[in-house]
């Protein structure tokens, strides 16, 4: 069985490892620490009965918009797919965003080619496509920028145009390295 619980500092090493195992956007430990120390309430992990971390959601508040949450990263090991782990992690993060930060909306990016993830966000969690961000990823793939309202429309203070103003994304290792190499030339 897979247990879903709030993330702790001691989970971050395993989280980084799961991220390296599953996803092409990787970060150094410092970034996970930054995330946790800034928004300790918002991230959740999934672990199996042997206390092995098998999934996580890393969530935050938009630096420019205190009512807007953002999912930085979500991963579930292939060995634990189809259990609804991703959905459960997302629901916990969404609830924490509303409860702790009174967030009105949550956003995320997903690769255009990642049908499984898109289906999860679009069909199951009811996210809507906000826009397509051209060449968002390090390998130039486009991203769907997706959002989900966490409150009924009449309670919203965030306007649609605010959502388009994307905040700067954390720079994964790969891209930063490339940039530096570019500078060298």
């Amino acid at each position: 069985m897979v247990s879903i619980r709030p993330c702790q500092v001691s989970d971050l090493l395993a989280m980084q490892n799961a991220n390296l195992t599953c996803l092409p956007e990787n970060y150094q430990m410092k970034y996970y620490l930054y995330h946790h120390l800034t928004w300790p309430q918002l991230s959740f992990v999934a672990e199996d009965e042997g206390n092995k971390l098998v999934g996580y959601v890393l969530a935050k508040i938009d630096e420019n918009n205190p009512k807007k949450g953002h999912i930085t990263s979500l991963a579930v090991l292939r060995s634990h797919r189809k259990l609804g782990v991703a959905t459960k992690l997302m629901k916990q993060a969404q609830a924490a965003l509303v409860e702790t930060f009174d967030a009105e909306v949550v956003s995320l990016h997903v690769r255009k080619s990642n049908r499984a993830a898109f289906t999860l966000y679009h069909e199951i969690l009811k996210f809507k496509i906000q826009e397509i961000e051209k060449e968002y990823y390090g390998d130039k793939e486009d991203a769907y920028s997706m959002t989900l309202a966490l409150k009924p429309e009449h309670e919203m203070t965030i306007k649609d145009k605010d959502l388009k103003k994307e905040e700067k994304k954390p720079e994964p290792i790969k891209k930063a390295a490339k940039k530096a190499a570019g500078k060298k030339k």
């Binding site: 954390p170 720079e171 930063a176 530096a180 190499a181």
Partner: peptide, 14 residues
């Protein structure tokens, strides 16, 4: 030799 100093590459937010 082409890679950058790790500290320079991450957590721009921090």
């Amino acid at each position: 030799p082409t890679t950058t100093e790790p500290t320079a590459t991450t957590t721009p937010v921090v």
